[in-house]
Design a protein around this nucleic acid. Structure first.
Lengths: 123, 123
DNA sequence: CAGAATCCTCGATGATACTG
DNA sequence: CAGTATCATCGAGGATTCTG
């Protein structure tokens, strides 16, 4: 079964998971949050993924109506990403997921609200 | 980046997405819901995935504390799956996701609450 | 019935180099 | 700076067969 094949089925959750399917997208949503971010900033904050994948994910999210891509025709280029209303509506749900994880976590290192993923490899 | 590598990072949402990462797991949770289901029933209801993958997913979910696997030493064998408290706590969040999808959906065929994925290929 | 074992495919992801 | 283009890999997932 290919990546977004689920969307073809008449399953609401399936479609939701298509838009949110990659484990990156929720994180990207959470990183962008309510401010605008340039591509480079995103790439630094989520540097566990390659720039190519980040680009791909952002493109898909744009197509799914989660993010807005604003391109400035300048030199050097500048592109800013922000959440659409749909993307913003996802935030509270993602927070619930975080709480859920925090509440029921069993194993793994301590993790409060410090999302060290975001600036993990910045040296 | 390998499948559950995210879990190694100190990111709550990342860990949540590890447990919920596969796009199948949310659906499996939703299918099991609050009743017990035998493996065969699950396989029929979610027949878009192979039995092998279903088995794998269930094993992972068991390890993540989402489902309980109850094996009856009978012939023929019988195995029943049910949700743990942690898994049950996920349900309201998944419903929110469905609502979110329903509210903001743009394209695709009409889909209310009929999750035809579940009995899609049953002929 | 509920899987385990095996083999195989293919697509997501990464690495690298290049560009306007 | 924000990508694109190209090539390579590798592991999730599928198909099939077998078993207690």
């Amino acid at each position: 079964m290919k990546k977004n094949e689920l969307m073809e089925y008449n399953c609401p959750l399936g479609k939701a998971m298509s838009a949110l399917g990659s484990k990156w997208k929720p994180i990207i949503v959470l990183v962008i949050k309510d401010r605008k971010l340039r591509f480079g900033e995103l790439a630094v904050r989520i540097n566990v993924i390659s720039r190519k994948v980040l680009t791909d994910q952002l493109r898909e999210m744009e197509a799914d109506g989660l993010v807005i891509r604003q391109e400035f025709k300048e030199i050097p280029p500048r592109v800013e990403y922000s959440l659409t209303e749909k993307g913003l509506a996802l935030l509270p749900i993602l927070y619930l997921l975080e709480e859920w994880e925090a509440k029921y976590q069993i194993k793994g290192p301590k993790s409060k609200n410090d999302c060290t993923l975001l600036d993990h490899k910045i040296s």
